[in-house]
Design a protein around this nucleic acid. Structure first.
Length: 152
DNA sequence: GCCAACGTTGGC
DNA sequence: GCCAACGTTGGC
């Protein structure tokens, strides 16, 4: 089982939304590296931090579980969707989604600045300058260190 | 709102 | 296949 960190802008979809819906489709990824990672590395049973990006503060808000294999993201076929991709066809889908399930919301959001200061967590991918991928690997040490933070 | 990082597009 | 221009992400 692997660990991940997955980003969402809470104004679009937050951990509170996932808590309410319990299970959701993680849709709208339009980056090939992330697409390949979903296809090749992310598996049902993997656990992920739910990260709030473009937020105040940005940071880790809770935990979810990946509960499906990657499958074609239906929003790419929907002209009404902001994620519509005119070059994608049902015969040749470009983009993938996975289903995720709520596990728990942290008592507080762990801000990015706090991660950066931490001796172990400062090395997380998400702390790297210019890191823009929305699905990032997390090591077991990093996972455990986040869960050991006070108030989490 | 600014801007750094970096992925994507498209001319050649 | 190179590379400049452009677009997007996302912290601050």
């Amino acid at each position: 089982m692997r660990h991940w960190l997955m980003k969402s802008e809470p104004s679009v979809y937050s951990i509170a939304d996932l808590r309410r819906e319990v299970r959701a489709m993680w849709e709208g990824c339009r980056n090939y590296l992330v697409r390949n990672r979903l296809r090749d590395e992310v598996r049902p049973g993997d656990m992920a931090f739910f990260y709030h990006s473009n937020s105040q503060p940005s940071g880790i808000a809770g935990i979810m579980e990946v509960v499906s294999e990657a499958y074609p993201d239906p929003t790419q076929f929907d002209p009404e969707s902001p994620y519509f991709d005119p070059k994608a066809t049902r015969e040749n889908p470009r983009w993938l989604a996975v289903d995720v399930e709520f596990v728990r919301e942290f008592a507080r959001v762990v801000p990015l600045a706090e991660l950066k200061e931490h001796p172990v967590l400062g090395g997380m991918e998400v702390c790297r300058r210019g890191q823009r991928l929305s699905v990032l690997p997390v090591t077991t040490d990093e996972w455990d260190a986040v869960l050991a933070l006070p108030g989490v």
